[in-house]
């Protein structure tokens, strides 16, 4: 099936990865890597794109194996800038941001359900959850939602059949084998095991989010009293 002969976009060599190049929109390009590309390489490449394109870049959306970039310039110039930027990838990558997030398990609406589903006690769920570190791999779906990997497989628990219409900001949930944080109040179908008092998404800050993709996240347990008096 060939409808229109048109110039295909070239394969793009960038940051030692060979990317398929597509158009997402009139002023948006999608760089797509093989599905098994390590997520670090995506995050690393997104940072590199920011530094190469500077103010020509108006937005960027990295995901599992692709990076969408939004630009305000001639497409050919953008592609050329990226394809000639290979050299920069030699430099040392920036250190990974580490974030400690306080969590109150007493506010975990579904802690009991997760424990039952896993066939262990609630204390064991908490121990396992506290013991691991997680990595922010994607921000999206709803404003400020942080998808993370690193969840111990014993804690995996299917999403709820009936999503809740309202979850408080800072709700920390498990959806299947993934875990994530609802930075802002929103509807949601994940099992909530705890809540953080941190406003991870703050309208007034620039950038508004204190966790970025690639950040390493670890949790520190706080009591309900500490939660309630947080920041006061």
């Amino acid at each position: 099936m060939n409808i229109l002969k048109e110039k295909e976009l070239p394969l793009l060599q960038f940051n030692k990865v060979s990317w398929d190049l597509f158009r997402l929109g009139e002023q948006s390009l999608l760089l797509q890597a093989p599905f098994d590309i390590p997520i670090e390489k995506i995050h690393d490449s997104a940072k590199l794109i920011k530094s190469v394109l500077g103010s020509l870049l108006t937005d960027i959306v990295p995901s599992y194996n692709s990076i969408a970039l939004f630009h305000s310039f001639e497409e050919s110039t953008i592609i050329e800038k990226l394809s000639t930027a290979r050299g920069i990838s030699q430099k040392k990558s920036t250190p990974i941001q580490k974030v400690e997030i306080p969590i109150c398990y007493e506010l975990g609406l579904d802690l009991e359900h997760v424990a039952e589903h896993s066939g262990i006690s609630q204390d064991e769920v908490i121990d396992i959850h506290l013991n691991d570190t997680y990595r922010a791999i994607l921000i999206g779906f709803t404003p400020g939602f942080i998808y993370m990997d690193g969840l111990d497989e014993r804690l995996a628990c299917p999403r709820k059949a009936n999503p809740r219409k309202y979850l408080e900001f800072g709700s920390i949930g498990i959806g299947g084998e993934q875990t994530g944080i609802y930075s802002l109040a929103s509807p949601g179908g994940w099992n909530i095991i705890g809540r953080t008092p941190l406003h991870l998404f703050d309208y007034k800050k620039q950038p508004p989010m204190s966790v970025e993709v690639g950040s390493e996240v670890s949790y520190v347990r706080i009591t309900k009293q500490e939660f309630e008096s947080w920041g006061s």
Binding site: T58, D59, I60, P62, F70, I139, P143
Partner: peptide, 10 residues
């Protein structure tokens, strides 16, 4: 609203 897709904002 432009420039905030990276934070999941439509």
């Amino acid at each position: 609203r432009f420039g905030y897709r990276q934070f999941g904002i439509p």
